[in-house]
Design a binder for these strands. Structure first.
Lengths: 130, 130
DNA sequence: AATAAAAATAATAATCGTTTTTATTTTTAA
DNA sequence: TTAAAAATAAAAACGATTATTATTTTTATT
């Protein structure tokens, strides 16, 4: 094993485990800096990548060009609000059948797929109708 | 109408219409520059955005952090090879049912969704098995 | 406990895709 | 033909992320 303990990595993982809002690297940085004022943004990025590689967290893409991170590594869908940018989990069972479907008529090898949803979150929808 | 004709925009659209490989802005720039040696990268970006907004082309995200562009604006799925990065169309009918499904148990408004596939393309799969 | 190699860090610069700015040139309607 | 509106080229700026480097931590071994 070539992975050594680090207080910073633990703090990052600990912070993330408390969040359901799918923070970006910068949001993690801002928060963890309260406990480690000298932590570097590079350290945050490196550890988030490390944690994602070992499968302890997952990196998610919702099409805004910024990586978000999720302590819940089970397969599930995400939604991003086009107005406020918030990212939420969707209560929709992940089918997984899509991979097999796509394998038809394809000469390569499908390893996986990504699906995300977008629209207006509850709050922004409410705000618009008032 | 606030959209004026431009030779550059026509050249960009014309070039894109000949391609099935989903070029990036930079690929468009490199090619169109053969006809317009002084065209600026900013002009390419602005016109691709303009064409995507008017629905003449579509902007696609395959999770590599780079926007690709497609002259085919019909809804269909894309695949990207993790090895060589090529982007291909998938012959898989777009269901569209997913939006409705997601609307269940959600207090906001789902406007749409994006799905893309990844893995090894035919060539890279072949190369690996030899 | 002392040591030394391996890994992690902070600080910073660099990179990459993309957007913005600005002064100039094209387009187009009058 | 003229003048306003939009488009352009060139360049700087931007934001997210990665790479570099010298220093500090961790950890296995004396």
């Amino acid at each position: 094993m070539a992975l050594k303990y680090s207080r910073q990595r633990e703090a990052i993982k600990e912070f993330l485990s408390t969040r359901k809002d799918h923070p970006t690297a910068d949001m993690v940085y801002t928060q963890v800096r309260k406990e480690f004022p000298n932590i570097s943004l590079g350290t945050v990025y490196r550890n988030l990548t490390l944690l994602a590689e070992t499968g302890e967290i997952s990196r998610i893409n919702v099409g805004d060009g910024i990586d978000h991170f999720d302590p819940d590594t089970s397969e599930h869908y995400h939604f991003q609000c086009k107005k406020c940018g918030c990212v939420q989990d969707l209560k929709l069972e992940h089918t997984g059948k899509t991979n097999e479907l796509a394998a038809m008529q394809f000469d390569g090898e499908i390893m996986g797929s990504v699906t995300y949803f977008y629209g207006l979150c509850g709050k922004c929808k409410e705000a618009r109708n008032s």
